[in-house]
Design a binder for these strands. Structure first.
Lengths: 198, 198
DNA sequence: TCGCAAACTAGAACAGATTCTAATAGCTGT
DNA sequence: ACAGCTATTAGAATCTGTTCTAGTTTGCGA
């Protein structure tokens, strides 16, 4: 239910705790990229990361928290990729499409992981930074550096909507009900309209 | 994972099997409309429906299948209500908004059940007719009688996108992260753009 | 260095979904 | 009435997420 404050409660996370946390997330990601969430069993993750089950639960109070952490890393990758090579298209809508399709291709590379992560996140009871981060990324890229704080409410609404459309399309694709081209067409259509006057 | 063919495998479902199935679904719905999915425990459902656990699993191979069945009944209600009293607004976009907000209010009445509904929709492996039905309903209502078969692909895309936005907003609401008014604002903004030239 | 609080560990315990088993009940065709 | 089949039942068993326990290790301020 909670996010994941460092174990101690009040103090700063030490280096070794940071390492441990990282090892756990990596082990989890490795397992998930094979058999999906069900292969990512808490006992197995703990074993693989070389920590006790209780320790795993100290770092990640629930499996969902762990999933969220794994997803967080994926988004980090996307963000740094965008930073490294920003979309060069000329309209806000096409820059947004660029980002989303790049993310789509990234996730397609590990379909099991993607499927597991997307599903879990959508079902998550916990507050996940996922939606907000994607929304912020879209705004930044579409409206040239606009941040979530500076954006007008209606701009946030529209970026959020585009993000929703994308997530749903991604899910459909992972279910085998959409091709990459279909997603692209739909995202382009939605972005062109939603971001027309952003 | 599977749909739910009648127990026997090949033969027609008998009356008593039909009754049994119905009792199970009713018991499940009753439990879910209180504590949500977690209150709807398989043992409890079986007990409440007066069948053995094994029998419950013969009818519904997984809890999700049971949820989907419960949800199916709710969707029927929703659709027939909308057909009984069609939205009277003047623009396609506002008729679509009308439908979606009516559905929203309907679902708000049983939040626990709604939560289960939306979640199951999103993660169902099985093809739930819901997405298509909602898309079709939106098209029909917005473009005055247009059916899924007659619609152009781009129209279906846009209606599908609006449906995605709605589902995501609904989920956020059920998580307590959106108010009704926020949803309305977002749906109106999205519909106005997506359905502008439908 | 001492001592304490927090972190860690192995493993048992618990909970709820799902599966399995052995036995019984009910129907169908002969 | 009988044989053979499927449905059903009670209950045990299994699997995995989560919690709990009791004891050990570690970091660190006095």
């Amino acid at each position: 239910m909670e996010s994941h404050p460092p174990p101690g409660g009040h103090s700063v996370r030490t280096r070794s705790q940071h390492q441990r946390r990282k090892r756990i997330v990596q082990a989890a990601a490795a397992l998930a990229s094979r058999g999906g969430v069900e292969a990512m069993q808490m006992r197995t993750v703990a074993e693989r990361a070389g920590v006790a089950l209780g320790t795993l639960y100290r770092y990640f109070p629930s499996k969902m928290d762990l999933v969220v952490a794994v997803v967080g890393e994926e988004i980090d990758l996307l963000e740094s990729s965008i930073e490294r090579r920003p979309p060069g298209a000329t309209t806000p809508a096409s820059r947004a499409v660029d980002v989303l399709m790049r993310a789509t291709r990234g996730l397609m590379r590990e379909p099991e992981l993607a499927d597991a992560l997307i599903r879990s996140l959508i079902l998550a009871e916990v507050q996940t930074p996922f939606g907000d981060r994607m929304t912020g990324l879209l705004l930044r890229v579409a409206a040239d550096g606009l941040t979530l704080e500076d954006a007008r409410e209606d701009q946030i609404d529209l970026a959020g909507s585009l993000s929703s459309v994308w997530v749903q399309e991604l899910l459909e694709m992972l279910r085998g009900r959409r091709t990459y081209d279909q997603i692209q067409r739909r995202i382009e259509a939605a972005a062109a309209r939603l971001f027309a006057d952003i």
